[in-house]
């Protein structure tokens, strides 16, 4: 079977970077490093979306998770940085080990389940199926727009209402007044 070397390399590059940076982010000593690593993860995820043909999702991912959210985080970090204690790292309570154990079991069982489903499933396709990239982007946007405005139009409208409510809600939080009244 013919193997697309370039694609393999790209995938492994992105995937390796993603896992590495995710681990780094969790175990980083300083929160800022943690954030930087997380941004790398988000960019790598965008790359994965690109390989999968989801260009639009990738762009949105970069715009939101690559740029907007990190800025918010940076603001929060700046706000707290001088009070930050470097000892706040990760807990080494029993729950660290229990969760490690539990998640390890979960991981192995899911790997097993996915693998068995891949080979045994009647729509075995999972292993044989090749990814079919779209011939033209027009097709994809057509499908997306149909998804948004026909199939899931109700959810879309609800989402818009949700965003409106978030704005209204934030006005009830009374960010500045509240802070002063507490002191």
């Amino acid at each position: 079977m013919e193997i697309d070397i370039l694609k393999t390399l790209i995938f492994y590059g992105f995937a390796g970077a993603m896992i590495l940076f995710a681990l780094l982010s969790i175990f980083a000593f300083r929160i800022l490093y943690s954030l930087l690593a997380a941004v790398c993860v988000f960019f790598a995820a965008a790359g994965i979306y690109f390989i999968l043909g989801a260009d639009y999702n990738a762009v949105v991912q970069i715009a939101i998770y690559g740029i907007a959210i990190p800025i918010l985080f940076v603001m929060a970090i700046m706000f707290t940085s001088d009070k930050l204690d470097k000892k706040i790292y990760i807990t080494f309570k029993p729950r660290f080990f229990f969760s490690f154990l539990g998640l390890g079991v979960l991981f192995l069982s899911l790997i097993y389940l996915i693998a068995t489903s891949l080979s045994l499933n009647s729509n075995s396709a999972w292993i044989l199926q090749k990814q079919t990239l779209f011939i033209n982007k027009y097709q994809m946007f057509n499908a997306l727009s149909e998804g948004f405005f026909v199939n899931y139009v109700f959810a879309f409208e609800l989402l818009s209402l949700l965003l409106l409510i978030v704005v209204v809600g934030i006005s009830t939080l009374n960010l500045i007044k509240e802070a002063k009244s507490d002191e």
């Binding site: 109700f154 959810a155 609800l158 949700l162 409510i165 809600g169 009830t172 939080l173």
Partner: peptide
Amino acid sequence: LTMFISMETLGFAMFFLIA
């Protein structure tokens, strides 16, 4: 999808109410 968005609508409004 509809279920998820409804759930989140409920949840987001609840956040502000709790706060």
